[in-house]
Design a protein around this nucleic acid. Sequence first.
DNA 1: CGGAGGGTTGACTTTAATCAACAGCGGTGG
DNA 2: CCACCGCTGTTGATTAAAGTCAACCCTCCG
Lengths: 224, 224
Amino acid sequence: MYVTDPTQFVETYDDDKIVPEITHRRTMTLKPGKHLFLEGDPANRIYEVTSGVLRLTRMLEDGRRQVIAFGYPGDTVGFPSDGYYHTDCDAIVPTTLVVHRRSDLETSKGDAALHQRLLRAALREISAMQDHFMMLGRKSSVEKLASFLMVLTDRVGTPLGDFTQVSLPMTRSDIADFLGLTTETVSRTFTQLRKSKIVAIDHINTVIILKPKALRSIAEGQDD
Amino acid sequence: MYVTDPTQFVETYDDDKIVPEITHRRTMTLKPGKHLFLEGDPANRIYEVTSGVLRLTRMLEDGRRQVIAFGYPGDTVGFPSDGYYHTDCDAIVPTTLVVHRRSDLETSKGDAALHQRLLRAALREISAMQDHFMMLGRKSSVEKLASFLMVLTDRVGTPLGDFTQVSLPMTRSDIADFLGLTTETVSRTFTQLRKSKIVAIDHINTVIILKPKALRSIAEGQDD
DNA sequence: CGGAGGGTTGACTTTAATCAACAGCGGTGG
DNA sequence: CCACCGCTGTTGATTAAAGTCAACCCTCCG
């Protein structure tokens, strides 16, 4: 019930014209709460998420935390810089991964097609991070939460009658640390969206998008 | 683009045994205020800054602006995603650039060494953006400004007696939009740092770092 | 000399954070 | 099986931080 809809994942693959080969594929699984790597670890592997959800985080000395990204199926994680990882990464649900050796991908010796994929993934990542900047720096709490829900709707939403269902495997605290808010504010903002009938909250970790257009226009700051 | 200290850049060159050839190098210059590209333009070129400073920005419909990065010498700008630029880019001082055709860099046909450079630049960019996330999402206004000044000190600071001088070619409004603050808050925060004798403000666009250690510990959230 | 734009400062408002209480659920063990 | 504990989430009251609105200054330039 946690896991991201497999059809979504297949589509992502189709879009990218990536047909994974059985040969030369190393896969692994990761249990919830288990770390894939920590900030400062030497970065020898690059991973592609095939199912589940990862959480990439950074911490300040005093415990303040920023969730950099959630790694959904189709995402690549573990981009190295100067040979090291610059975030912690752990699983929030059981997760399966394809493992690539960094040396295969980064040096000229490796497969050119794999190379291409890494570069494309990095460029997509940069673009996604640019959206995230605008969100962190310039949006209000409702706009942040609406943006977050829209992204998830577009990526991993599943149709449910006339509406779209989105599962939120992460805690409120994860959402808060992703959006640069507190858990209390996230909670209040959910309540606000629920009371204005834009979303319904099914179970704590399942929301139903009732008015996608309204949600999107909030996300983009059109109403104020 | 945000943090890459210049020695780093030189080392990267050495590591890769890339000595840019005069041949096949196309350069250009850009006057202050002139745009290099706009959000949504097809991304056919990738640029390396050789002198000057660029500003990369994104806008919301209602005019709210986020400065994504400043492009200093050694930085690469114009990373495409889906074939388009996702930010505006203009010069804030006279700027010179090396121009690369995207097709040369991104497709398998191009020079493998150039390929490598693009990938490295993209990975550095991702790492820098991760710092910026923490700053936007979790730091207070003083911490933000201190972080900004530290990065500039490390990258482009020039020794001045016992101290370090940093020039700020961008306006207060650019700094505000980079840090997710208002110009008023930036101004007040400069005053605060000036009054506590951590920096001195020479000319509007030149600051002198009097207590780098104090500034760094504020930036990292050690004092509160 | 005068005007425009960028920057600073002050007074006040708004937003989200903080502090605190409590509800719901899920697991554990008596 | 039920009681209790601990964790996550919600809600309320209050506070703190940054935003807004406004006045003013300074400098650069025509």
